[in-house]
């Protein structure tokens, strides 16, 4: 074992000496053939050995920079291959595969993005309040895409404008419990006045 270790050390040493001799010879030959080289190198502060080392550093720096630049890109673009939840999958009509839109970077866009905001406004205006039930279509990122039949998604988006309206619709009509305040007056069936019905209650002592 020790023989092997010391053997490799001896080999390393002898190889180092041989390589150093070669290196020195090549360096001497270069400067002998081109005597003006030293002056040029000094003038521009060039170190021949460092040219290669610097180029390696540039490559490493570029790789590190590229990795840092890629982090926000990767974070901002989750994998589109993830399967949506089961309920969502069943409830929406997915477009045909050939209709998927590819952006210039080659990623497939969520189908919700293809609905332009102006088109949505038009469709909501045409459908009136019934169009409001489809709250998912108005989500800009298309995350709620395909949840047409799902109930409130406030838990998902927080209580923001993104949450679709509640199904009972009382809040939208301004009808809260105990707050009718006669808004419904006049709408009910009034019926005829008791006198018009000719109902005469018997007075005291009067025989019926």
């Amino acid at each position: 074992m020790f023989d092997k270790f010391f053997g490799s050390t001896n080999k390393s040493e002898s190889l180092r000496n041989i390589f150093s001799t070669h290196e020195q010879n090549s360096y001497t030959k270069l400067h002998q053939n081109h005597p003006h080289l030293r002056e040029l190198l000094d003038r521009h502060n060039i170190d021949l050995k460092n040219i290669r080392k610097n180029s390696v550093k540039i490559g490493a720096a570029a790789a590190v920079l590229g990795a840092f630049l890629a982090i926000p890109f990767l974070l901002g673009h989750p994998n589109q291959d993830q399967q949506p939840p089961q309920g969502v999958e069943n409830s929406h009509t997915s477009p045909p595969p050939d209709a998927s839109v590819l952006n210039p970077e080659g990623r497939s866009q969520p189908s919700g993005i293809r609905i332009s905001p102006s088109a949505q406004i038009d469709s909501q205006g045409a459908q009136g309040s019934s169009g409001q039930k489809d709250g998912s279509g108005s989500f800009p990122g298309g995350v709620g895409d395909g949840s047409l039949e799902s109930k409130s998604q406030g838990h998902k988006y927080g209580r923001s404008y993104l949450a679709p309206p509640k199904e009972h619709g009382l809040h939208d009509l301004g009808l809260h419990k105990g707050e009718d305040k006669g808004k419904g007056a006049g709408k009910g069936h009034e019926g005829a006045h008791p006198e018009d019905l000719e109902i005469n209650h018997p007075e005291k002592g009067e025989e019926v």
Binding site: S12, F19, E23, K29, L48, R52
Partner: peptide
């Protein structure tokens, strides 16, 4: 040791090639 020697070999080749270029 392996990579030190490889670096030295690289330096030798560098000098030789630069000589040809000049």
């Amino acid at each position: 040791d392996h990579y030190d020697l490889l670096n030295q070999a690289d330096s030798i080749l560098h000098n030789e090639v630069l000589n040809v270029i000049l």
